[in-house]
Simulated scan of single mutants.
Amino acid sequence: MQEIERKFLITSTAFKQEATVSQKIVQGYLNSHPERTVRVRIKNEKGYITIKGKGDKTGTTRFEWEKEISLEEAQALIQLCELGVIDKTRYLIPKGNHIFEVDVFEGENKGLILAEIELSKVNDVFEKPDWLGLEVTNDERYYNAYLSKKPFTSW
């Protein structure tokens, strides 16, 4: 139940040509406290509830627990979420032994495009595509919980 991930800005939309899957995602937060977040997500036609703990000093590692729930449950829980529901399309791009998840944000976060890669260990080596830009792993402004309260378009 440990998540190890790194986040990057994107330098071009060339990633779309390499994507094997795209998913529409709507997510909200029942709790967005910095020590723990409780997220409800609808991804395509499935629902999920996720609890995340506070990240380590580098921002790469934190506790994560996720459970699939019914679409109806997720839709009902989204209605109870804090203001600032996130709307985005996620593109999955395989590179070597890893998969990059590139999120293209809409609504109040329109214009923001972030890539994430989940790793099996902190010092895991991975292939960096040409469209991968500045690493923002430890910058809390790029956390979805932060973006739900202080959208990218307001920076």
Rank of each mutant, 00 (worst) to 15 (best):
G59Q: 04
L112P: 02
E5C: 00
P34D: 10
K88M: 06
S12M: 09
L132Y: 03
V21T: 15
V38M: 07
I25H: 01
K88V: 01
V40S: 02
F15D: 00
D103S: 07
W131F: 13
V26Q: 13
I25K: 00
T61Y: 08
E64C: 14
G55E: 14
Y146F: 15
K16W: 08
E135H: 07
A19W: 04
K121M: 12
E18Q: 12
S154E: 14
S154C: 11
K128W: 03
R90V: 01
L83F: 15
Y29D: 05
K67S: 15
V122S: 08
N31L: 15
E18S: 11
T13Y: 14
E135V: 05
K128M: 07
T60L: 06
K88H: 04
E116N: 09
Y143T: 10
E45S: 13
E116I: 02
F105E: 07
E68T: 09
P94M: 03
K88Y: 05
G111F: 05
A14S: 15
Q27C: 10
E118A: 09
V104K: 04
S154F: 12
E140P: 02
Y91Q: 01
K54T: 08
L9G: 04
I51W: 07
E18P: 00
L119T: 07
I117K: 00
L134C: 07
D139S: 09
S12K: 11
D103R: 00
G84S: 07
H98A: 04
S70A: 08
L112K: 05
E101Q: 10
Y29M: 04
A145T: 12
K46H: 13
W131L: 03
C81H: 08
K149S: 14
S12G: 10
I93T: 05
E68R: 12
Q79S: 12
I86V: 07
R6L: 12
V125Q: 09
L80P: 00
K110T: 10
Q23V: 13
K46I: 13
L112C: 04
I78W: 01
L134A: 06
E127L: 08
L134S: 12
K54H: 02
K57F: 11
P151E: 06
L9R: 10
D87W: 11
T20V: 15
R62E: 03
L83A: 15
P129C: 01
T50F: 13
G111S: 01
T11C: 07
K16I: 05
D87F: 13
K121L: 14
P129Y: 01
D139G: 13
E118C: 09
T37D: 00
Q17A: 15
S148L: 02
F152K: 09
P151R: 06
L83W: 15
K95L: 01
T89H: 09
E73W: 08
G111T: 03
G28S: 05
N123A: 11
E127F: 02
R39I: 11
G55S: 14
V102I: 09
D124A: 10
L30D: 01
